[in-house]
Design a protein around this nucleic acid. Structure first.
Length: 575
RNA sequence: UGGGGGAUCGUUCAACGGUAGGACAACGGACUCUGACUCCGUUUAUCUAGGUUCGAAUCCUAGUCCCCCAGCCA
């Protein structure tokens, strides 16, 4: 059974096919996923990952994983490992693993080339002064007083910047473009800044570090990237992307990439094209790096891998299959419309994959005692259950059955509402795989709460017998009280209780919209075999939902499951 | 107010001058030893106003609304 989704005919897929068809880059396709190693990957990143790796794969191309590590003060080694693990978990593998810092020498050579062409200058303005000179959205900026330094002076100054002769923040290298441009990105943007901090990859070899716009386009070119796919907010950076590459002409200037060949890094240089698509947002969640970090740091969640987090590591711990996330983004397609996708679409993808792939089990998360009175107290029986209702390849399993069972409390109603199909006083229900029982009496505690339902089992309706075909309205799941294994089960709901927690309205912030009931921990009774489940193994607990053995806490005698998602519930929804 | 983008069912993505279609959601039904799955059916959309055309979601004009941009972040 295939769980892959049909391919959407989105504009980037079309563009790449057309480019190939007309022989651009000799039909070669190369993409890259360029995370900054300063946070964990989330579902939004997955959209970009699926696109970049997907486009490469379906066009016989390559895709690089490139760490965009141009700012040493923000990065952390912890993230480098995590990002690789997340990309692999999602189901992708890179053709090359690279760092922007691999190209620091190239960036430097390129900067000298721009200076020599009179297209870059060293500016002594402070950060505040630069801001002041930049102008505003509606008024043009003014030229820096250092804009007309000679090439020789600029070269000398820039070399001394590199040599560490100036303090942090005292000078920058700037592109000489147009301070009156209506596009602010073109008002002599900074190319290099001084940061006397060691870099996790290059140590203290450098004290000047390139800016994103400058480094990114060169990195793309140097790696032979053909299609540089990024999100919408970079749309008005594209003129700068093009400006740098056009003036640098890396394709025809081998001297610029000589340092790479000297290091043994051989890649074909290209003139890449940037194309932007809309990032993907989900309702009832926040996706910004800042807010995610805050949730972790303020212990609102239990860490980056909290199953309620939209991080990939969180989704993994929640039990989401990677194929579901891939299908999700492929099914939505890629466009330039800013969109917030309903969470139910993701859940639908998760259920679809899990329905096909998750073996079935029984478990009771809110137990009520049910005693079958017409069976000897010592009755002990082993029943055989199919592990999947539609796929025989899942095989069968043995389930212990005895007269004292746990059933779900909500499967019994002393005073049933209209349309209730399950157990009620004097009523009948089928015990899954057993037969039909009739509720004969109740046992209540002092407070009047039902603590036990006493039933008789109709022997003619036992599974396998002709009488088993007798119709009853409801079928409920159960576990044998004597055989079941105790488990901790974590029930997760959405983290926020409004569709757009980012909407800061009426003085409220996302923190005012936290769902206090997003995590519930219960003690459950499960089929004994579940104690042997491997961490991260996924199951459907019949009639309850999909559950995953916690990848960290389950095992060594502890039985710990996380609820990934409930089953669709057309009954619960009616009420 | 400058620049860059975007407006199609509730949500999202198609339709590339020729019948507005899919997915999810919702609703109704069939099936069912999971109120699941599956199957069938139904409801609902081209931002507005003009224009071009035999024919416009698509082209033109004028509006309206939404998003992004004033880091030595990415």
């Amino acid at each position: 059974m295939s769980i892959e989704t049909p391919l959407a005919n989105h504009f980037i897929r079309q563009l790449i096919r057309e480019d190939r068809a007309r022989g651009l880059h000799n039909g070669r396709v190369a993409t890259r996923f360029p995370p900054e190693p300063n946070g964990y990957l989330h579902l939004g990143h997955a959209k970009s990952i699926c696109l970049n790796f997907g486009m490469a794969a379906e066009n016989d191309g390559v895709c690089h994983l490139r760490f965009d590590d141009t700012n040493p003060v923000k990065e952390d080694l912890e993230y480098i490992e995590a990002i690789q693990a997340d990309v692999r978990w999602l189901g992708f593998d890179w053709d090359r693993l690279l760092h922007a810092s691999d190209y620091f020498e190239v960036f430097y050579l390129c900067a000298e080339k721009l200076i020599r062409k009179g297209l870059a200058y060293v500016c002594d303005l402070s950060a505040d002064e630069v801001r002041e000179y930049r102008g505003t959205l509606t008024s043009p900026g003014r030229d820096s007083p250092f804009r007309d330094r000679s090439i020789t002076e600029n070269l000398g100054l820039f070399r001394r910047m590199r040599a560490g002769e100036y303090a942090d923040g005292t000078r920058t290298l700037r592109a000489k473009i147009d301070m009156a441009s209506p596009n602010i990105n073109l008002r002599d943007p900074a190319l290099y800044r001084i940061r006397k901090v060691p870099h996790q990859n290059t140590g203290d070899a450098w004290c000047i570090y390139p800016m994103y716009d400058y480094a990114h386009c060169i990195s793309d070119a140097v790696e032979g990237i053909t299609h540089s796919l990024c999100t919408l907010e970079f749309e008005d950076h594209r003129p700068l992307y093009d400006w740098c590459l056009d003036h640098l002409d890396l394709v025809n200037d081998a001297s610029l990439t000589a340092p790479l060949r000297a290091k043994g890094l051989h890649m074909s240089v290209s003139r890449p094209q940037q194309t932007e698509f809309a990032r993907g947002n989900l309702d009832y969640t926040v996706m910004s790096k800042r807010k995610l970090i805050a949730l972790v740091q303020d212990a609102i969640v239990d860490g980056w891998d909290d199953p309620r987090m939209p991080t990939l590591i969180g989704a993994r711990r929640r039990g989401f299959p990677p194929a579901a996330i891939r299908n999700f983004w492929e099914r939505l397609g890629y466009s330039k419309q800013v969109a917030t996708i309903e969470y139910s679409v993701l859940e639908g993808c998760v259920r679809e994959v899990l329905d096909a792939q998750a073996p079935r089990r029984m478990g009771v998360i809110d137990p009520l005692r049910l005693v079958i009175t017409n069976l000897p107290a010592g009755h002990d029986e082993t029943l055989t259950f199919a592990n999947h209702p539609k796929d025989e390849s899942f095989g069968t399993r043995e389930v212990a059955f005895a007269p004292v069972l746990w059933i779900e409390r909500e499967d019994f109603m002393e005073v049933p509402v209209k349309g209730f199909h399950r157990l009620q006083p004097g009523g009948e229900v089928r015990l899954r795989g057993v037969g039909i029982v009739r509720c004969e009496s109740l046992v209540k505690d002092d407070a009047g709460k039902v603590v036990e339902v006493r039933c008789t089992l109709d022997p003619d309706t036992r599974a396998g017998l002709p009488g088993a075909d007798r119709k009853v309205k409801g079928t409920i799941h159960w576990v044998s009280a004597r055989h079941a294994v105790a488990a901790q089960v974590r029930l997760y709901g959405r983290l926020f209780n409004v569709p757009d927690p980012d909407e800061d309205e009426g003085g409220k912030t996302y923190r005012d919209h936290l769902n206090p009931d997003s995590k519930r921990i219960v003690q459950a009774w499960l089929e004994a075999s579940l104690a042997q489940a491997a961490p991260e193994e996924r199951f459907q607990f019949e009639r309850l939902g999909y559950f995953v053995a916690d990848r960290l806490d389950h095992g060594d005698g502890r039985v710990v499951f996380n609820r990934t998602v409930t089953l669709r519930d057309s009954y619960g929804k009616q009420k």
